[in-house]
Computed example of a mutant assay.
Amino acid sequence: MDWLFLPFEVSFVQRALVAGLLVSLICALVGTWVVLRGMAFLGDAMSHGMLPGVALASMFGANVLLGAALSAGVMAFGVTMLSRSGRLSKDTTIGLLFVAMLATGVIIVSHSQSFAVDLTGFLFGDVLAVRPDDLVGLGIALAIAAVISVLGYRSFVALAFDSRKAHTLGLRPRLAEGLLLGLVTLAIVASFHVVGTLLVFGLLIAPSAASVLWARRIPMIMLGAALVGSLSTVIGLLVSWYWGTAAGATIAASAVALFFVSAVASRLTRLLRPAPTTATAVPVPTNEKIEYSS
């Protein structure tokens, strides 16, 4: 079993492991709401919509995190304002802004002398080059995400399943929607410069989607997503070490692979589940509902 622990005896792999685990926990908290709310396309658009801010910050020697946050903020504000017009669907506004921001970012980056390197780092990051300061930043982001998730839990649950009911109960769905956008922005901005937008989006969606197939209570979905994301990090780093693959992309691929394993296992479990043995016919629900309670 020495092969299992040998890579993690190296200091930079240890830091990569800690970074991957922290990102997994952040994405488990945020990704659960993204999956339940159906915000996957928005998450993808937000992650790539940061490119103009990152590119401009790099060109002018400013803080890359600040540029990413401003760009993501512009994206979130644009989606919110255009969606309120009522004449365009949210998917349409997200798609338009996604293309506009990504195209603008590529145009800006194309004037740089290090176009390929900058774009590759933006997409895939460099998890094996994580510094101690990066780990501190991820820890702070995790704490903020946890506090917001706890304080906004009731509003997020109502918004995820029935926004009209949330309004009736006085839970201020628009404010909850804004906080959710803020959580998505926090997860992406805090993590992308360490692990890249590809890994962030992979850990944001795949583990939570895999957990939803099994768990019915939201805290259990978050716990399952954290476990799947952590396992993806370990598997990805091991495969990267022994096969010489890109660490960030391998972790993201591992997360998606675990989702498909979970989906197949869930399907087989349903097919092999014994039929009711009672004499009377018992209706079998086609879809299991997620419980609102914590």
Rank of each mutant, 00 (worst) to 15 (best):
L223K: 02
P132F: 08
G73L: 05
L175P: 01
V261A: 14
F122D: 09
R131E: 15
L179K: 05
D91P: 08
L22N: 06
M1R: 07
A40H: 03
S24W: 10
L66E: 13
S163F: 07
A76S: 02
A145M: 10
F122R: 12
S230Q: 10
L171R: 03
M220G: 05
A246N: 12
S163V: 14
V136D: 05
L6Y: 07
R270K: 07
S112L: 06
Q14I: 02
G236K: 12
F192Q: 13
T32D: 01
P285C: 05
I221A: 03
V13E: 00
W33C: 03
G86E: 00
T185P: 00
Y153A: 09
P276Q: 00
V54E: 02
F77C: 02
A62G: 14
A249C: 09
L97T: 09
T93I: 10
S155T: 04
R164Y: 07
L97N: 06
V284W: 08
L88W: 14
L97S: 06
A55E: 07
A253W: 12
S71Y: 03
K90H: 07
P276Y: 00
I144G: 01
F98Q: 04
F192C: 14
R174F: 12
S110H: 09
G121I: 08
L96E: 01
G95V: 01
V109P: 01
A246S: 14
V147A: 13
V18R: 05
V79L: 00
G43N: 04
L227A: 13
Y242E: 03
E9S: 13
F156N: 12
R37L: 07
A16G: 09
A215M: 10
H111R: 11
A76N: 01
L142D: 11
L17W: 11
H111I: 04
I188T: 06
S208V: 02
G105D: 02
L96K: 00
V106L: 14
A158C: 05
A72E: 03
I221W: 00
A257E: 12
S149A: 15
F5D: 08
I205E: 08
S24M: 11
P276H: 01
Y292A: 13
M101W: 01
L42I: 12
V64S: 04
V194M: 11
S230R: 09
I148S: 06
A281V: 13
R37W: 08
A187M: 00
L181I: 09
M101K: 05
A116Y: 12
S85T: 14
W243C: 09
P173Y: 10
L213A: 14
V117P: 05
A28L: 06
V234G: 09
F259M: 02
V109C: 06
G86S: 04
F12G: 00
A143W: 07
S191G: 02
K90M: 11
W241N: 13
V99S: 12
V18M: 11
V264P: 06
D44G: 15
L66P: 09
G121H: 12
W33R: 04
V79G: 01
M59V: 15
W243N: 06
A215P: 03
V189R: 03
G248D: 11
L142C: 06
T278W: 04
I218V: 15
V34G: 02
V195T: 13
L231K: 10
V261N: 05
T197A: 12
L102Y: 10
A28D: 04
H167W: 11
T104L: 11
A249N: 05
T92I: 08
F156G: 08
H193N: 15
G61D: 09
Q14H: 01
F122Y: 15
Q113K: 14
M46T: 01
